[in-house]
Amino acid sequence: MKKGFLCEPENGHLELTDKGKLEGMECLARHEKLTQFFQMVSGMDQQRAQEDACRVEHYISPEGLKGIENFLQYGDVYDRIYDDMDLYTFYEDGDFPMAFGLYEPERRNPRFLATEYEKLEQSVILRVKKSQNCFRLKTKKDESIGCVWYRRDEEWIQAKEEKGVYQLPTDIFTYTANTGIPVTEAVAIIAITRFEQKPLPIDYRELNIHVW
C-alpha cells in the first residue's frame, strides 16, 4: 500500500490499484517467458520450469530478460555482441592462427587498411592458456611498426613486445557471436606509435580478427 500497488482494504479485501495491475501483468509476463525459456533450453517439465522461473523473475535484469525475449521470438540465430568474453570456454590450450585486418577507423566507406598491415604476418595467433589468453601480432622479418597500445578503462597501456611479437589481452575485444559459430569476430581499437609517447587519435587503428 505504501508503494501504491494496493488499495486500502474494504470489507477485509485487498484490491490492486491500476499501478498494481500493471506491475502484476509485467510480473506474469516475465514468469511466462522464463517458464517457456527453461522448457525450451533444458527440456524440463512445466512444473520444474515454473519453479525456476519463480526464483529468477524477481532478480533478472531488463537486459537479461530482453535477451530471452529475442531468443523466444527469433531463436538463437541473431548476432550478439559480447565484452570481456573468456575464450578459454571455447578453446583448449594452444595456439590458433586467424585471419585479421588492421584498418584506419575513421575511413569506412570504403575501408582502408592501415599502412602497418603490410608489415605484419598474415595471421594473428590466438594463444589460449587457463591463466592468460591473448592475441599475438607478429611483424614480418626485418620489419618494425614501433609501439603497440591497447585501451582499458579509458587508459592506454603499452602492449608487451618480444622479438617483434605484440601481446594483446583477449578481454579488450568486443566479440560477435551467433548460433552457427560461437564466436565469429573480435574487434578492438588499438594504437600504433613510432615512439613510447601516449597515442593520439591519428594513431588509432581498428583491429578486426576473424575468429574461427
Rank of each mutant, 00 (worst) to 15 (best):
Ser123Asn: 14
Ala99Ile: 08
Asn133Gly: 09
Gly75Lys: 03
Tyr150Gly: 01
Gly43Met: 11
Asp83Cys: 09
Thr89Leu: 08
Gln39Arg: 15
Tyr117Pro: 00
Gln122Pro: 00
Phe112His: 13
Tyr103Cys: 03
Leu34Ile: 09
Ile60Leu: 07
Ser61Cys: 08
Met85Ser: 08
Glu106His: 06
Gly146Thr: 10
Leu87Gly: 07
Lys66Gly: 08
Leu28Lys: 14
Leu65Ile: 13
Tyr88Trp: 05
Pro97Asp: 04
Ser131Gly: 05
Asp84Gln: 11
Asp84His: 08
Ala29Ser: 11
Phe71Asp: 02
Lys138Ser: 12
Gly67Tyr: 03
Glu26Lys: 15
Tyr91Gly: 05
Pro62Phe: 05
Gln46Ser: 13
Gly43Lys: 07
Arg111Val: 11
Leu28Gln: 14
Leu102Asn: 07
Arg136Gln: 08
Met98Ile: 01
Leu137Gln: 01
Gly67Gln: 12
Pro110Phe: 04
Lys130Ile: 05
Cys147Ile: 11
Gly75Trp: 04
Glu116Lys: 04
Ile68Gln: 02
Arg30Ile: 03
Leu65Met: 15
Ile60Glu: 01
Leu113Ile: 02
Lys129Pro: 01
Gly67Phe: 06
Gln39Ser: 12
Met44Thr: 12
Glu26Met: 10
Glu92Leu: 10
Phe71Arg: 02
Asp45Arg: 09
Lys130Tyr: 08
Leu87Ala: 09
Glu104His: 05
Leu126Arg: 02
Thr89Gly: 00
Asp95Val: 10
Asp95Asn: 13
Met40Cys: 07
Phe112Ser: 10
Phe112Gln: 06
Phe38Tyr: 15
Asp93Tyr: 02
Arg136Ile: 15
Lys130Thr: 10
Lys140Trp: 01
Glu69Ile: 10
Gly94Pro: 04
Gln47Asp: 12
Arg48Asp: 12
Leu87Pro: 04
Thr35Gln: 11
Gln122Met: 06
Arg108Lys: 13
Pro105His: 08
Arg127Lys: 15
Lys66Pro: 00
Ser42Glu: 11
Asn109Val: 01
Phe90Gly: 03
Asn133Cys: 15
Glu121Gln: 10
Pro62Cys: 07
Phe38Met: 08
Val124Thr: 04
Ala29Asn: 14
Asp76Tyr: 15
Tyr82Leu: 08
Pro97Thr: 06
Ser61Trp: 04
Glu92Pro: 03
Met40Glu: 15
Asp93Phe: 03
Arg80Thr: 13
Asn109Trp: 01
Leu113Arg: 02
Phe90Ile: 10
Asp79Lys: 11
Arg80Ala: 07
Val56Glu: 03
Asp86Lys: 13
Lys129Trp: 02
Ala114Trp: 02
Leu34Arg: 02
Gln122Gly: 01
Phe38His: 04
Ala29Tyr: 09
Gly43Asp: 07
Asp45Phe: 09
Asn133Gln: 15
Tyr103Val: 07
Glu143Phe: 07
Phe37Cys: 06
Gln39His: 10
Met98Trp: 02
Arg111Ile: 11
Arg136Val: 15
Ala99Pro: 01
Gly64Met: 10
Glu106Asp: 13
Arg136Met: 07
